[in-house]
Design a protein around this nucleic acid. Structure first.
Length: 854
RNA sequence: GCGGGCGUGGUGAAAUUGGUAAACACAAGGGACUUAAAAUCCCUCGGCCGUAAGGCCUUGUCGGUUCAAGUCCGACCGCCCGCACCA
């Protein structure tokens, strides 16, 4: 028996699907729609194992849903703008566009070799002017709808990428891609008003019940809603007042100072005639915002000499400090300090010798006995030293004090969010140009819609540092569309997350001249199942949720949530090795014998590290193409699905791939040996089935039931295990009777249908070998279990004595309790353990367990 | 510091959500076929005691609830992730 010829098979069936145009999606009102989407790749060069896993998962879902009768939309495209193209341009002297196109060609070929069920007719690349011209128009619509503004502000500057980063792109004070320490710079930038939707984005999370809990939590934390109050502190000797934000207005009577941020307008003003303060402010700005900088930085303040008047007691004044720990970006950039009930305020008060007055005491402890040491008291309790609030609990005191502040006009209830507006300007070439023109007379002028797209220039110079668009000789020089005088184009481009925030909507109709085809998006959206990496939990997934709402506001579509189902897959990991100097080694350079890893050539002992995410720097990547070339796409796909649940990390092992390959061959042999049925069409269910045959038929129906449930819940590893069990079942049934032969064929044909979403080429090859020429497997309906075979007539019931398993008995299904009890008690083991006494109690869980309590 | 998750054989994991722990695999060991190898097939495979029948123990640790706990509750240990000077 020859081995499964995956090369020929995969080529053949891929061609067959293409010829039959199996995966083209068209709107069809007669079938329920199902939109399955995997996060589209950045065309970095070649696909990696993470892609293989991601797209295998999506393909199984798409093929399964199609078999179940859904009208499936399953598109693929390229997230094609981004910095690596510019780096390649600098290093290899290739234009970013050419580099990107070449990568797309390579990766498209690689994806096609996986046999993925995409509607390639909808392929798009975001760097195509035909794509980005639409987002330029969307931007102008956002402008008209008040969703965009331009602001001079402190931004995160990545000194390696020479560009601005959004807050979401700063991880631990470093650029998300470059890893460089981020600096603060003041620049004029375009912002999208994501904060307008803060509450909606928060509320919307509650309905996303098919999203992983932790992703919703991360977004919730990122949006960071807090409830509190704005409180006005009048300033002694001045007409203006200081607005502070607090979540603890109940502690107002414990206030001993106010503190403002270094960049607070008041601080700036005072610094003009207080040089020492100016120096202090400059020092604060020099301080990084990295985790390390914050950890080590001491809480410092500068007494401005100003005095704030307590809003609830005109005779009470407290000092106003400029403090390095107050952030201008949050709240109003000013706080009041209540040292007794905030650890940071307490540290500050001790340092500058300020008063510490407790105003909340633990319940049941007399006010006089309660003092604050080095630890602030943060819990609930009873208000003390607080006039009209005394005796109340914290929640009531909060409500009461805000009522009073509102009544006397010194404060208001306020809700704050941690979420900041999304800065979308990037000082890069390889992105979508922001369609505005700067005119000395007219200011910022939107590019007229009939002049879109603003296309990127092709000839660019990457030898000069900085933004190539900015120092391009001609590109930016245009006449003002309003007054006609010479003006300059905006040379910033959009953050590349702009493109990925609406591509899922464009897929609904990639041919339309409009940005979106309203009928098509209304038909297909929302995406029923989205699949991708957890690393986008707040970045891409939050931006897309916002963008969808913004598009809705501009009349482009009707849904608010783009993705109703989300599956976040784990990483593909692989063993790492390092030599004595800590240098990473390729696994292929290492041999392991007897638990000791050695260098293949030098024989030097090397250190086997833990399994880590595949990455070039750790030298533990496995190239998917070599795997597909030597084992086939189906083996790679099966391995990706077999052992680990999709949301967990997957450990790559050569042995695991071998195991998948062996199983594929085993299935192939079963089908090839079975061959076409001796009669055509094959006979129906034999009039009577032998016991063994009946057992296999039942197992087959149970497998259909189980696998269907597993795939519905994305338990692919369990589905594979079940199918393997059924394969073992076929091998065990060795009889030659007519009913045995029939049962084996039935089980095998069922396996073909069940495994088809996972190993589609193999399934087609088996289908053909089994003589099923009536069309492709991909066109077959998903099998359904006959409930008549799901019921077992007999069940094995565990018998316990005092909770310990002592034996099992076989009973008729749903046997009456007294019968079950009789059978259990008659076991010798049970009798001997009971001695002569009667059992104290017998617990019977029908069809499952009997526990005799002695 | 705050929030969340996880901990089961040598390994990846499963366990109908409180009801026979370790399904299905991988690795390992033994055997069959073969001149040999590969491929394939069969057997063993959580630990301890025992020739055996069998017995005892076992889901990070300790305690609790229950007829019954991997699953629920409490404390602790360890690992992972997210956020973090957020007022």
């Amino acid at each position: 028996m020859s081995r499964y010829n995956f090369k020929e098979s995969e080529r053949t069936w891929q061609a067959a699907w293409e010829a039959a145009d199996c995966f083209r999606a068209t709107e069809d009102a007669t079938r329920p729609k199902y939109y399955v989407l995997e996060m589209f790749p950045y065309p970095s060069g070649r696909i990696h194992m993470g892609h293989v896993r991601n797209y295998t998962l999506g393909d199984v879902v798409a093929r399964f849903k199609k078999a179940q009768g859904f009208n499936v939309l399953h598109p693929m495209g390229w997230d094609a703008f981004g910095l690596p193209a510019e780096n390649a341009a600098i290093e290899n002297n290739v234009p970013p566009a050419a580099w990107t196109q070449e990568n797309i060609a390579t990766m498209r070929r690689q994806l096609k070799s996986m046999g993925l069920s995409y509607d390639w007719g909808r392929e798009l690349a975001t760097c195509d002017p035909d794509y980005y011209r639409h987002e330029q128009r969307m931007f102008l619509d956002f402008l008209d709808n008040g969703l965009v503004y331009r602001k001079e502000s402190w931004v995160n500057w990545d000194p390696v990428e020479n560009t601005v980063l959004a807050n979401e792109q700063v991880i631990d004070g470093r650029g998300w891609r470059s890893g460089a320490l981020v600096e603060k710079r003041q620049l004029s930038q375009w912002f999208l008003k994501i904060t307008d939707f803060a509450q909606e984005l928060l509320d919307g999370l509650e309905e996303l019940d098919r999203w992983p809990e932790r992703v919703r939590l991360m977004q919730e934390n990122w949006i960071g809603r807090s409830e509190g109050a704005h409180v006005d502190f009048a300033l002694a000797g001045r007409d203006d007042s200081l607005a502070v934000y607090t979540t603890r207005p109940d502690t107002l009577f414990g206030a001993s100072f106010c503190a403002i941020a270094a960049n607070h307008p008041l601080a700036q003003e005072l610094a003009s005639d207080q040089p020492v303060l100016g120096e202090f402010i400059a020092e604060c700005n020099r301080l990084g915002t990295s985790e390390a900088a914050i950890e080590t930085a001491e809480k410092r303040g500068y007494d401005t000499g100003l005095r704030a008047i307590h809003p609830l007691d005109n005779s009470w004044q407290i000092p106003v400090y400029v403090a390095n720990f107050v952030l201008m970006e949050y709240g109003s950039g000013a706080v009041f300090g209540c040292p007794a009930h905030d650890q940071r305020d307490l540290d500050f008060a001790r340092k500058y010798d300020l008063k510490v007055t407790p105003v909340v005491a633990p319940k049941g402890i007399p006010a006089a006995d309660f003092t604050i040491g080095d630890t602030a008291y943060l819990e609930d309790g009873t208000l003390i030293n607080s006039g009209f609030l005394d005796g109340l609990d914290v929640a009531t005191a909060k409500a009461r004090v805000i009522d009073r502040l509102e009544y006397i006009g010194r404060g208001t209830r306020a809700v704050k969010y941690r979420l900041r507006d999304w800065g979308v300007s990037r000082q890069r070439y390889w992105g979508c140009p922001i369609p505005v023109i700067h005119c000395e007379d007219c200011g910022v002028v939107p590019v007229p819609r009939d002049q879109l797209p603003v296309e990127l220039p092709v000839e660019v110079d990457f030898d000069t540092p900085g933004n190539p668009l900015d120092h391009h000789p001609t590109w930016k020089h245009v006449d003002c569309p309003t007054c006609g005088k010479p003006a300059v184009r905006e040379t910033d481009t959009f953050d590349t997350f702009f493109e990925s925030s609406w591509y899922f909507a464009r897929f609904c109709n990639t041919a339309t001249e409009e940005p979106l085809d309203r009928a098509a998006v209304d038909h297909w959206l929302p995406v029923d199942q989205y699949i991708g990496g957890i690393e986008h939990a707040v970045l891409h997934l939050l931006y897309s949720r916002f963008f969808t709402r913004a598009l809705k506001k501009c009349g482009y579509l009707s849904v608010s949530e783009p993705f109703v189902g989300l599956l976040t897959q784990g990483m593909v990991c692989h063993q790492t090795f390092r030599d004595a100097n800590g240098k990473w080694l390729f696994p292929s350079d290492v041999t392991v014998d007897g638990g000791q890893a050695r260098h293949r050539e030098t024989g030097e002992a090397v250190k086997a590290g833990r399994s880590e995410k595949m990455s070039k720097s750790k030298r533990n990547v496995v190239d998917p193409e070599t795997i597909i070339d030597s084992y086939g796409a189906d083996t790679a796909r099966l391995f990706m699905l077999s052992d680990s649940p999709p949301d967990r990390d997957l450990e790559w092992t050569d042995a695991g791939i071998d195991g998948a390959w062996r199983y594929i061959n085993r299935l192939w042999r079963l089908a090839a040996e079975e061959g076409a049925p001796s009669e055509s069409p094959p006979r129906g269910v034999p009039a009577s089935l032998g016991d063994d045959a009946m057992a296999l038929v039942k197992q087959t129906h149970q497998t259909i039931e189980g696998v269907t449930g597993d795939l519905d819940k994305f338990h692919f590893n369990k589905a594979v295990a079940r199918i393997r069990e059924l394969t073992n079942g076929i091998d065990r049934l060795v009889g030659g009777s007519e009913s045995d032969i029939w049962a084996r064929r039935f089980a095998l044909e069922t396996i073909v249908l069940l495994i088809a979403p996972m190993t589609p080429h193999l399934a087609e090859a088996m289908w053909k070998a089994l003589g099923r020429r009536s069309g492709l497997v991909v066109e077959q309906a998903w099998p359904t279990a006959d409930s008549g075979y799901l019921r077992d007539d007999e069940v094995t019931v565990a018998v316990q004595v005092n909770g310990k398993l002592r034996g099992t008995i076989t009973l008729a299904k749903d046997a009456p309790n007294d019968e079950a009890e009789q059978a259990a008690l008659s076991l010798d083991k049970v009798q001997s353990l009971l001695g002569n006494g009667p059992p104290r109690k017998i617990i019977i869980v029908p069809n499952r367990i009997i526990n005799v309590v002695a």
